[in-house]
Simulated assay, not measured.
Amino acid sequence: MEGDGSGDLGLTVEQPAIIRAEAGDSVTMNCTFGIEKSHYTVTWSLDCGDLPPLESSPCYQNRVTVQSNYREITIVNVTENDSGTDCCRVEAFGGRKGIGNGTRVEVTKRQPVAVSRDGERKCFILLGVVGFETCVVIALLAVLIKSRLREVLIFRPRAPTTP
């Protein structure tokens, strides 16, 4: 039965259930089944329907690469519009067929905070440090200018006054 990982003639096809990514990332989906060598064809389809292959869709033009004789497909620079379920269909020599359960791709907006593995908030820390340093430099310049103006005004010779 289609959609349950097996096909009309019992070919079991497995693929990851879900892949999460942020906009701009790359997503790689793989498809495993029990056939070796090149006695099969693999087609990746959008929304697990009878649509044209994923890699020939205009939405994915120049963003899809396939590896391992189509057992693995990578979409680069994903967008939120790439969210959906993609299926791997396999047809083996001799008529055996199978379709995976589908991999749900969830693409979210890229987060503005860059969080490293150790939890540092690099973006905000960097912006905070640069902002603080800028304020200190401006304050020092203001103090320096004010003191120079005071010196000029205090030591400026006065014009002689006539009695």
Score class of each variant (00 low, 15 high):
A142L: 09
V137N: 12
L141Q: 15
Y40G: 05
C123G: 07
T41F: 06
S26N: 11
P16T: 02
L9A: 13
V66L: 12
Y70H: 10
V152S: 05
Y40T: 07
T32H: 11
T28H: 10
P160K: 04
S38Y: 14
E22G: 08
V115N: 14
T161R: 02
I75M: 03
E91D: 10
R89M: 03
R148M: 00
L149Y: 12
L149E: 12
R121F: 11
G119T: 02
K37S: 09
I35S: 05
E106C: 01
E22V: 05
F155P: 08
I154K: 09
K122F: 00
L140I: 01
W44I: 05
T162D: 05
F93V: 13
W44T: 11
R110H: 02
S56D: 13
A142C: 12
E2K: 07
R158T: 04
H39L: 15
T65I: 11
G3V: 10
D8C: 07
K109R: 06
P53W: 09
M1L: 06
R117M: 04
G24Y: 12
P163H: 05
T32W: 07
F33N: 04
M1R: 04
F155S: 11
M29V: 11
D82W: 08
V136Q: 08
I125V: 15
T43Y: 01
C48G: 06
E55A: 12
K122I: 02
S147H: 09
T28Q: 14
E151Y: 04
Q67I: 14
R20Y: 01
V90D: 03
G102E: 09
E2S: 08
D8K: 05
T12Q: 14
T103C: 08
I18L: 13
V129H: 05
R156L: 00
P16M: 01
H39N: 14
V64G: 02
L144C: 14
R156M: 07
N69L: 08
P112T: 09
